[in-house]
Simulated assay, not measured.
Amino acid sequence: MADKNGPAGTGETGPGKQHEATIRDDDLERRRRDLEASLATRRPDKLEGKDDAKAGSVAGYGQALKLSSEFIAGVVVGAGIGWIIDRLAGTTPWGLIVFLLLGFGAGVLNVMRSAGVVSEFGQGEKPRRDQDDRK
């Protein structure tokens, strides 16, 4: 019985099989070169994207640090003012409690202003054009 490995079944390949293997190897090598060429054209774009993502994450950390420091500053300043008032007026714990709450509110307001959720004082929303045209 003849095996798939060769005419005598010994595992040897005939001359036709060797030619097919060479053609497959050449085809594989050509495909590999084409793939490398297409990847080489895309690599600079990928590297720039990584730098942009890295810069975006650094900017995000900076924004988070800014927002948290503004909140903490509001609370600390409020607590400091309350403590000073308590020491001068002798109204211990009430000045600290009241100004700590005021500092908390100021910190939240500062964070919202920095995030762009609330406009600055006196900078209210401008009327839209279509509302002005109706009058």
Rank of each mutant, 00 (worst) to 15 (best):
K17W: 00
Q18F: 01
H19N: 00
A21T: 10
I23Y: 04
R24G: 01
R24C: 04
R24D: 14
D25T: 12
D25M: 12
D25L: 14
R32Y: 13
R32A: 13
R32W: 12
R33F: 02
D34C: 02
L35A: 11
E36F: 10
L39R: 13
L39A: 06
L39K: 10
R43D: 08
P44K: 08
D45A: 13
K46F: 11
K46Q: 12
L47H: 04
E48K: 09
D51M: 06
D52H: 14
A53S: 09
K54T: 13
G62D: 15
G62K: 14
G62H: 11
Q63P: 00
A64V: 09
L65R: 11
L67N: 15
S68C: 05
E70I: 10
E70Y: 15
E70C: 09
E70W: 12
A73I: 02
A73V: 02
G74M: 09
V76E: 03
V76R: 02
V77Q: 01
G78C: 05
G78L: 05
A79T: 11
A79V: 08
G80S: 11
I81R: 01
W83T: 14
W83R: 11
W83G: 03
D86W: 03
T92S: 08
T92N: 08
P93T: 04
P93D: 03
P93S: 04
W94T: 08
G95W: 02
V98R: 04
F99W: 13
L100C: 04
L100K: 01
L101V: 15
G103T: 05
L109Q: 12
V111H: 03
M112C: 11
S114L: 15
A115S: 09
A115Y: 04
A115P: 00
G116V: 10
V118G: 00
S119E: 09
E120W: 08
E125W: 06
K126P: 01
P127T: 12
R128D: 11
R129A: 14
D130V: 08
D130I: 09
Q131G: 00
Q131L: 10
R134T: 06
